[in-house]
Simulated assay, not measured.
Amino acid sequence: MKRTGRVSALIALTGAVCLLPPAVAHADKTPPGGGGIGGSSTPDGTISATAGGIAYDRSKNGAGTSVGPLAPVGNWTPPACWYAPKYSPAEFKAYVEPIWNADSTGSSWDATQRDRYVNGKPYTNFNLDKADKGYWWDSYADPSFPPGWDACQKPYFWVDKGAPPPADIPEAITPEVLGKLAYAAIRVPTTKVTLKPDGASKVNLPTWAWLDKTDFHPVSVTASVPALGISATTTATPVSLKLEPGTADATLSPASGECPINADGSIGTPYQAGSADNAPPCGVTYRRATSGTPYNLKATVTWKISWAGTPAGGGDLPEGTFGQDQQVTVQEIQAVNR
């Protein structure tokens, strides 16, 4: 049976939204990392303790107004829901007893809950005798993934400090789950490439394109659960730039439109005087002029994604992409007769 009568509040989480109960009176020690109740942040917003008892360190993430989330390649999505520590024994008691006393969930349901958490079937008196020895765990979910929320409907359960969560709960928070959640928090810079000519391009004249190494470098986000001493850092590293000219009347260089990253971290090669007639390492040659409406040149950077966990774990996650359109006007080359 699904839990009913639970009041939920919407709290922003790394650009998405997660469900968590409203804050309760803290009659006991709050679990480290906020226990999932509310959160805090540094003045610059790079480190925050948010829903799920998860703290996000964004100090090495992409920053500024021209950043955005990655689109994973394929059908992969971050976890839709997970279980993590939420309450100390006293906090749990303070949260559920008013709900039972209000009879908002029905006397039969309330009696079942009292049996489970108070009368020893299987827990006794909210585990108040275990204060500071563990936490009550609950589910958290991104409501953008309703099927995931349906998958995380187990009742509150207790986990002793240092003990693993029950084996029948695959959605329990782990370094690997943190690595996937950190993926969703990564922000990368927009892919506005530098073009030469930087004004109007000319028919049959190569247009050079490049990205500077100072703008495109690895970014990372670390997600951790201080209450459990686990964390994961997910890193996105740019690996290639793909150009799509916005018209069939164009020739790409290289022919695939895929421009690999250079050894120094840049993509493509800046134009130098005297190279106007040469095929650029990364660029496009338009064969037809625009007539009123510019071409939409799309530049998409592919990022390799990997994660490393503490105390252990790591590996690769699906690559992500982030692209941007740029308008390009192409003119005919005007010949001058003397």
Results as ranks from 00 to 15, higher is better:
Met1Pro: 11
Lys2Thr: 15
Thr14Leu: 07
Ala16Tyr: 13
Ala16Val: 14
Leu19Asn: 11
His26Ile: 05
Thr30Met: 12
Pro32Ile: 06
Pro32Tyr: 07
Gly34Lys: 06
Gly34Asn: 03
Gly35Cys: 00
Gly35Asn: 01
Ser41Gly: 15
Thr46Leu: 03
Ile47Gly: 06
Ser59Cys: 02
Gly62Ser: 09
Gly64Phe: 03
Gly64Ala: 04
Leu70Asp: 08
Pro72Trp: 04
Trp76Thr: 03
Pro78Asp: 02
Ala84Glu: 05
Tyr87Asp: 12
Pro89Glu: 05
Phe92His: 07
Tyr95Val: 11
Tyr95Ile: 01
Ile99Asp: 01
Trp100Pro: 09
Asn101Trp: 08
Asn101Pro: 06
Ala102Ser: 15
Ser107Glu: 11
Ser108Val: 15
Asp110Ala: 15
Ala111Asn: 13
Thr112Trp: 11
Tyr123Phe: 12
Asn127Trp: 10
Tyr140Asp: 06
Asp142Glu: 10
Pro147Asn: 03
Trp149Leu: 14
Ala151Leu: 10
Lys154Ile: 08
Lys154Met: 04
Pro164Trp: 04
Pro170Ser: 04
Pro170Leu: 05
Glu176Arg: 15
Ala185Glu: 04
Lys192Cys: 06
Lys192His: 12
Val193Gln: 00
Lys196Trp: 15
Gly199Asn: 07
Lys202Asp: 12
Asn204Ser: 10
Pro206Ala: 02
Thr207Ala: 00
Asp212Met: 03
Asp215Gln: 14
Asp215Thr: 14
Phe216Trp: 01
Phe216Lys: 03
His217Gln: 13
Ser220Phe: 01
Thr222Asn: 09
Ala223Gly: 11
Leu228Ile: 02
Gly229Cys: 05
Ile230Lys: 00
Ile230Arg: 09
Thr235Trp: 06
Ala250Trp: 02
Thr251Trp: 05
Ser253Cys: 04
Glu258Gly: 06
Glu258His: 08
Pro260Ile: 09
Ser266Gly: 13
Ile267Leu: 04
Tyr271Pro: 02
Gln272Val: 15
Cys282Leu: 07
Thr285Tyr: 08
Arg287Trp: 09
Ser291Phe: 15
Ser291Thr: 15
Tyr295His: 00
Val301Gln: 11
Lys304Trp: 00
Ser306Asp: 09
Gly313Leu: 01
Gly320Tyr: 01
Gln324Ser: 12
Gln327His: 00
Val330Cys: 06
Gln331Met: 01
Ala335Gln: 13
Val336Ser: 09
